[in-house]
Design a protein around this nucleic acid. Structure first.
Lengths: 255, 255
DNA sequence: TCAAAAGTGTTCGGCGTACACCCATGA
DNA sequence: TCATGGGTGTACGCCGAACACTTTTGA
């Protein structure tokens, strides 16, 4: 799959412009990021030269819109389409590829890319229940954000992920994108757990429920959970239409 | 000045990556944008072929960080340094340069640039009282945002400006960047007027004052206005230090 | 003395926060 | 019957919104 671009279309991608997608998903009460394990072995000794993780990225193709490149990467790496995907920052420092590990990797695998690659960072949000159990890309895995500090990351991808997380936290306060991370039908406590994992806080259940109860666009269904060993919870849906109709421009001048 | 890059250093800039700076300033109770008037005449007939406005932009140089390119453009076009300057969006559509006017301009003036230029948009905020009365660049002028819809704008710069304005409005709700647009010493009603022009609203003076009065980091001086034909107002300063010490992470889950 | 903007206080309602007990289900 | 998480109500305090009259200055 990846060969499609690195081999047969070699020369048709733009050598100095790429996109990087930080893909967030919610499962197991955790916010996770989809990362690719990178491993480089010496051809003779078969000794491991480097092993670390990177986010999903690729160069923009000749004649391709930058935003479309991100859509393409997402589809290639996860099979997902039509999900939340937005730019959050562009990484343009000249030293982003100069670490020894990364140079080694690039010389071996991508000798044609430029020394100074500008990368547009995208943030994608996916419903955790859509995680493919056995992907075409066995080297990609979900990592809880709480594990991030323990991981070795390639290029400037640590910074990329931190900026993406920042973006997510701020955006969530401004727009109803939290639902992009939840299944279509969700319970109030799933939603609460999601907030808690994103912000690293704990919230009072009663107050949370009261607040959600005031929002007309979060609609309870008749349906309940089943198969749970406790009182089954009511399931809710988010209505974008009701949201559009009822949202009021509240402009807190607070900063 | 501009020739420095377009002529003597021709070939040292990256043909497909540029920065565009949307520079906001506050004066005359208005939020203004610094734009450059563009005019192209036919060499024989001297007839005007196109006339419109653009934001301040330039290509990134070989070996230059993207963020440094923005700093350079800002300095070259306004003489200003050390002011608020942040990325807000990257414009990467393949059709951003294809309007007939723009092609005409590029063929004549910048034949060496690529067909597909990705441009990183930056938002700069300057104290309106620092506006140079007679600039080195007579073709640059401040335009109130209320006049924007009447102007002809080059390339995709209408979209660029609208995205910058959006960015400014959201950022102001999250961080104390409003002060970047005000003189060091300001009155409460200047601050109020600034909010009013940015958001296109009107606010109640008493409530506004009360709110500002609660913020420890907006500090009244002994000093008053003078030379005004009415009761002189108290002047205030913003203290970044007090802000850092007293800000509390308020996290409204509201969206 | 006039025009123009500055300064000031109260009331009301809504929303955030703190906090504890009973309920329904599967194992 | 037990463990697990679901569902619910009250009291308090803060802050945002509405609203009108007096004060100071330069012209």
């Amino acid at each position: 799959m990846r060969n499609k671009y690195t081999l047969s279309l070699m020369g048709t991608f733009i050598p100095n412009i790429s996109v990087d997608c930080v893909i967030f998903g919610f499962s197991n009460k955790c916010l996770n990021i989809l990362l690719t394990k990178r491993e480089l072995r010496d051809e003779e000794s078969n000794k491991i030269l480097l092993t670390d993780y990177t986010v999903q990225g690729h160069h923009v193709l000749q004649g391709e819109n930058v935003n479309d490149a991100a859509i393409r990467v997402l589809k290639d790496k996860t099979g997902l389409e039509d999900i939340f995907l937005e730019q959050f920052y562009t990484f343009g420092n000249t030293n982003r590829l100069v670490k020894e590990h990364d140079q080694l990797w690039l010389r071996k695998k991508f000798p044609m890319v430029s020394d100074h690659v500008v990368s547009i960072g995208f943030c994608a949000l996916v419903d955790g229940s859509k995680i493919l159990p056995d992907m075409q890309h066995p080297e990609t895995t979900w990592i809880p954000i709480s594990e991030l500090s323990k991981l070795e990351l390639g290029f400037d991808h640590k910074e990329v992920i931190l900026k993406a997380l920042d973006f997510l936290r701020q955006k969530i306060r401004l727009e109803p994108i939290i639902f992009e991370l939840l299944p279509e039908k969700f319970t109030i406590s799933q939603m609460q757990q999601l907030y808690e994992t994103i912000f690293g806080i704990t919230l009072d259940r009663r107050n949370f429920k009261k607040k959600i109860g005031l929002l007309e666009y979060i609609i309870p269904l008749k349906e309940k959970q089943h198969g749970v060993p406790h009182k089954p919870a009511t399931v809710y849906i988010f209505s974008q239409e009701v949201y559009n109709l009822t949202k009021k421009e509240k402009l807190d001048l607070i900063f």
